[in-house]
Design a protein around this nucleic acid. Structure first.
Lengths: 158, 158
DNA sequence: CCTAAGAAGTTGAAATGTTAACTAATGACG
DNA sequence: CGTCATTAGTTAACATTTCAACTTCTTAGG
């Protein structure tokens, strides 16, 4: 116990780090969103496109996509409906499990991805990656990995 | 130029770090939100309470609060209305500038803050701070500070 | 002083996200 | 086989966030 009534308050260094993390993650998301805006995409749209692009046959089951993007099924369902209306993806029935659906990248979705990806990468570099040294990067990764692991396993319970 | 058509794609290490950051920041927010839920607060509510608690006389101008919490004026206005209905804050007129308003912590808001803060700190520790060594923490802070600075200055323009 | 430009904040409507209830299909097992 | 719990996904209702229009007040310039 460091202090009054048993609460271990954060030290100055801990607090500063915590707040820096908070600030960076928020400002960064805003900035990336802004940089995608000219292409008519949101961060969410983009993340879906990335996942589908990297998947076999450019298709994923709704559930898997929801898990991969850390969204609820409901939210994903709405999201895919919007992207379907925008012509970026389409839904397709699943033969082997007739409850199931695939989200599939359309030709237009794939074109969009190819066009936008370079800009997005540039944006990630400009506002994050290129501001870190190689050592920073490595240290960051090694620090964050256990946290991610913890959160992944904690997630859902606790 | 590292690769095809002039796009500097991310190396494996860069990509891994970037994705780790993304994953951690999202899972972490979800987890903190969940831990606040039993107290009937959202992350947004809590952040407002923190800002007001740390302010002189537990009050801040709406604009300053919006800036501090990185929200639009409109969003903050709605947010404060909700918190006002919940009895956590109240609005008060500003003498010196009659366009202006203060958001002021109510007694109940202050009590809530005192009650919840220890749990929140514990949560931040459990899911983030305590998973990092002292060196990690320091390195993280030093890596993130320039990024935060960059984003703060970029913000609004570019 | 008067006026025009800008700042502070709110508001209503549209877009997005959440929650809970629902349908339909699967699969486990007696 | 039959039935019951579970999984996949949607939907409607509700909450929150965003966007644009608006009001009121301040301030700089003439």
């Amino acid at each position: 116990m460091d202090t009054e009534n048993g609460t271990r308050w954060l030290s100055d260094e801990e607090q500063a780090t915590w707040r820096a993390h908070l600030e960076v993650s928020r400002l960064l998301m805003h900035q990336l969103e802004r940089d995608l805006q000219p292409f008519g995409l949101t961060n969410n749209d983009y993340e879906i496109l990335v996942n589908l692009s990297e998947s076999d046959e450019h298709r994923m089951r709704m559930s898997d996509l929801a898990t991969a993007t850390l969204q609820s099924k409901s939210r994903l369902s709405h999201q895919i409906t919007r992207m379907e209306n925008a012509g970026l993806v389409r839904r397709e029935n699943c033969e082997s499990d007739r409850r199931g659906l695939f989200a599939v990248l359309t030709e237009q979705g794939w074109e969009t991805m190819r066009k936008v990806a370079p800009h997005h990468v540039a944006s990630v570099r400009e506002h994050f990656i290129d501001l870190l040294s190689v050592e920073d990067l490595k240290a960051l990764h090694e620090s964050l990995a256990p946290v991610a692991k913890h959160l992944r396993t904690t997630r859902g319970r606790a």
